[in-house]
Design a protein around this nucleic acid. Structure first.
Lengths: 224, 224
DNA sequence: TGTACATCAGTGAACGCGCGTTCACTGATGTAC
DNA sequence: TGTACATCAGTGAACGCGCGTTCACTGATGTAC
């Protein structure tokens, strides 16, 4: 059966979304153009009407990822005014990005990107650097206005912030979602927040006194 | 030219080591049996004299990784007696594992393992669970003898500990070693250690008062 | 110590499969007159 | 409003390449007598 004819901009978007979904589920290398095309409802070779090659599709996926990152930063900045609260909000959103079925960090960690073409490595590097740059800015902000301790440089803290999600996210993938990523991140955040907040900030923010209770523990090993 | 005939146990070891090295450099999917065989100095089909299939070679690589992890834990436990010091020592060793050219975490993060066969996912999961289990044990130890705060559960802290290296390690890979992973981890460790140590422990351990200076900053973006 | 035979590692050619990519063709949509 | 033509998205067959895997054969090593 012949698929309906659709404008190339729309198809490009469809392919990118389909690819994002599939890559998130299986990793880039395992996703074939055939699978992407099937998802969209056209034949494999139709992809070439809208993208020059498979690489370009991945690039479009990275565009989507970049957008999501940017949007999250914007929203977090406008939702909260206090830098520490902004960091907390962004962390929550980052976790949601992973849990919501669009595990974008998965795309970014994919082998194609870690070991693959220089083009993609640099691209992802750029996205992450920009993201970390935003975090650094927020932290500096907090340091300037006295809510975050100046003892440690903002770059180190920004990477620590990211590390709060990154490793647990891997565990989450392995456990197929059984591991309580959100709960863990909240608990980890409290430890982290406490250690970077000045007394002034801690006094103003009573929330740190009550860490979230542990819900599910580490996932049990799968039985063989 | 015909390769010298070598006992199968030795060849197995050689293939595993060669595979580890190559996987660390390029990721599993990109490593071909041809490349592994070339590294060892035999012809591709010779691999089948010693392994049933490519999957089995990866399994041997995971054996090596598991050994390294185990060894590090043992050494860290015997080198230091105080739990906090043990965590510090193990962190240093973990970083060295990455920096030393045998980026084992890279193997473990590889797509084959994240998205690949259930067999390998479960295997790696088991290795990591065991590793984290050791960390948890050390932390509980510290909590019991009063050097680590009991405010946060040991599981959460163990994942935070791992996160200190994991994310920066990715940056390190991207920057092709330009990022100062060791320096960062030392600085991050001090922040973390301070936040989990009780006053008693901090008083006993003056080292926490002087965080390491920032050497190289985040790596500059590669130029296009 | 020498000979005969079994075992086992190494070789290269060939197979088969998956998959990205190309291409000539079809048919729908949009535009000019 | 209708006709002619250009543009452009969709199709399926075919190609080519990489790579894991198989297989019959070679030749070295080790063992039995």
């Amino acid at each position: 059966m012949r698929a309906r004819k659709v404008k190339t901009e729309i198809r490009q978007e469809q392919f990118a979304q389909a690819a994002l979904k599939l890559v998130a589920a299986q990793g880039w290398q395992r996703v074939s153009l055939a699978a992407i095309a099937r998802q969209v409802g056209v034949v494999t070779s139709a992809v070439y009407r809208h993208y020059k090659c498979k690489d370009d599709v991945l690039n479009a996926v990275l565009d989507l990822a970049e957008q999501k990152f940017r949007r999250n930063v914007q929203i977090a900045r406008s939702t909260a005014t206090e830098p520490v609260a902004q960091l907390h909000e962004l962390l929550r959103r980052h976790v949601n990005l992973i849990v919501s079925g669009l595990p974008i960090p998965r795309v970014i960690l994919s082998e194609e990107v870690l070991a693959g073409s220089a083009r993609h490595r640099e691209r992802v590097n750029a996205i992450y650097q920009a993201y970390l740059g935003e975090i650094v800015a927020v932290i500096r902000n907090g340091q300037a206005q006295g809510s975050i301790t100046k003892e440690t440089d903002a770059e180190t803290l920004s990477l620590m912030w990211l590390g709060l999600v990154q490793s647990p996210a891997i565990l989450w993938v392995w456990s197929k979602g059984a591991f309580d990523l959100q709960g863990h991140c909240e608990r980890a955040w409290h430890v982290f927040a406490k250690s970077i907040c000045t007394e002034r900030c801690q006094a103003a923010n009573g929330a740190f006194s009550r860490p979230h209770p542990v819900g599910r523990r580490l996932p049990a090993m799968p039985q063989h």
